[in-house]
Design a protein around this nucleic acid. Structure first.
Length: 167
DNA sequence: TATATGATTGTTAAA
DNA sequence: TTTAACAATCATATA
């Protein structure tokens, strides 16, 4: 199953072969109508809805962006970092990506948890008193999130020393 | 002023 | 099974 992923819109890797620093930021086509924009970042109907958990690649991206910007402080194009990251990502072995996948897995766990709370809120907050509870929940959630994060960090040291598979 | 875009891959959710 | 959208970023450009 090829699953074609999202290569359709991307598939511009051919240009990635050339120095990314040459890529300028502008040169984009006219913005499509708001109604047609697929992302609609600003159109978040549900501000409480948790964002999707970053995949291992995005976790790696966060770290990669810093390094990339250090090596290429002149490069301001987000596409440049994306391409460079994509190439390196594929160049990395699974072992290298393993730590990032682990982080991504943790993010997913939190995402699922947030989704659970989000769904719960929807179920409970579908009626009146939504505002009042919303405020309370807001703080409550924040505290919980922090607590969870701390807890997660504390127990993050869980690592299996053995079980190493060499290629 | 404000928002959309570009580019990457992965993951999730829906059809 | 497959498709499609969305996650972060940030300077630029368009309306």
């Amino acid at each position: 199953m090829k699953t074609a992923k999202g290569k359709d819109k991307a598939k511009t890797t051919k240009e990635a072969l050339k120095p990314v620093d040459d890529r300028k930021v502008g040169k984009r086509k006219a913005p499509a109508e708001k109604g047609e924009t697929r992302k609609e970042k600003k159109a978040k109907k549900d501000p409480n809805k948790p964002k999707r958990a970053p995949s291992a690649f995005f976790v790696f991206l966060e770290d990669f962006r810093t390094t990339f910007k250090k090596d290429n402080p002149n490069v301001k194009a987000v596409s440049a970092v994306g391409k460079a990251a994509g190439q390196k990502w594929k160049s990395m072995s699974q072992d290298e990506k393993a730590p990032y996948e682990e982080k991504a897995a943790k993010r997913k766990a939190e995402y699922e948890k947030l989704m659970d709370a989000y769904n719960k809120n929807l179920e409970e907050g579908s009626d009146e008193s939504e505002k009042s509870r919303s405020e309370v929940n807001d703080e409550d959630e924040a505290s919980e999130e922090e607590a969870q994060l701390e807890k997660g960090k504390a127990g993050d040291e869980e690592e299996d020393d053995d079980d190493e598979e060499e290629d």
